[in-house]
């Protein structure tokens, strides 16, 4: 029986991995292409949650989940156009400072607009409750969430690997100078990547609003975990982030099974071990501009 319980935790960890993935993937893309560590990423996650609640009040849950990433993605375009763009070639410490500052401004803005008290949010009636498959218990809502994550993941993978857009982006990650020499401006690509990245973070916020507390600092809570996933996965690697997100989810679940107080620190131990053995992360590529 014991191993069944353990297996249940592993399966649950896979589902949870989807959650980490939504936030970490955009963070990794923005860093890989622009070389900018976006500390404001969590703020877009929080905005995604708040905007989805506003839309949800008027148009319902499905519209909220669909439109919130679009609205926040549009904010992402402004963010890239007017702020981030100035820092691609600057000293990394500057982009760290500016995005960190922006995260604080965003959190305070949320506090001013929506108040410091957390907002209530519920799962739509038809997605409530659990499904029991074999001996395993799954939350109906989380299974839906996992399906959405898989669709989003597939779409981003196809975009990056099967389109000319993706070819330019991937070339831009490795050799931005060569891309420039071929007469291609990377700037519009970067704008799209940022919009896409913060859009997926917003989707994470919209999807998680019904099952976690929606409050101004929710972005700051998730950003550290997202970084851990990116670092474990390795920069520039799509599958690295996927693998890392799943691994973090599973390791956390299994740790809680055996030693509950170590649940939250487990991901940091995992990061430590991965960095000891593979300093570039699990599937990290050698990227010349970062060496």
């Amino acid at each position: 029986m014991q191993w069944m319980f353990l297996l249940e935790q592993v399966v649950n960890g896979l589902v949870l991995g989807g959650y980490y993935l939504l936030i970490a993937l955009g963070l990794s893309l923005i860093f890989s292409v622009g070389g900018v560590v976006n500390l404001a990423h969590g703020a877009f996650y929080a905005l995604g949650a708040y905007v989805s609640l506003e839309i949800g009040k008027r148009l319902g849950f499905i519209s909220a989940v669909a439109l919130s990433p679009v609205v926040v993605g549009a904010l992402g375009i402004l963010f890239e156009r007017f702020i981030l763009r100035r820092f691609y070639t600057a000293d990394p410490i500057l982009s760290l400072l500016v995005t960190f500052g922006l995260a604080m401004v965003a959190e305070q803005m949320i506090r001013i607009i929506w108040g410091a008290a957390p907002l209530p949010a519920s799962i739509p009636q038809e997605l409530k409750g659990a499904i029991i498959i074999g001996d395993f218990l799954f939350s109906r809502y989380r299974l839906t969430l996992l399906a959405i994550v898989i669709v989003v993941l597939a779409a981003i993978w196809l975009l990056l690997h099967k389109t000319s857009f993706g070819r330019v982006v991937r070339a831009g990650i490795q050799r931005p100078d060569m891309v420039a020499a071929l007469g291609i401006r990377l700037q519009p690509y970067m704008t799209t990547i940022v919009a896409l990245g913060v859009g997926t973070a917003a989707l994470g916020g919209a999807l998680f609003a019904p099952i976690t507390i929606v409050h101004p600092a929710m972005g700051a809570e998730i950003i550290t975990a997202a970084f851990v996933v990116v670092v474990i996965g390795g920069l520039g690697s799509f599958w690295g982030v996927v693998l890392a997100a799943i691994l973090v989810g599973v390791v956390r679940g299994v740790t809680i099974h055996f030693l509950p107080p170590a649940g939250e620190p487990s991901m940091y131990v995992l990061m430590f071990l991965v960095l000891l053995l593979r300093p570039r992360g699990l599937l990290g590529e050698r990227i010349e501009k970062f060496e």
Partner: peptide, 20 residues
Amino acid sequence: DELVATDATDFSPYLLKIRQ
């Protein structure tokens, strides 16, 4: 009796243990 870190936002592993 299980301990949860104050920064934990996901309780699903604990919920599974409760069910068990």
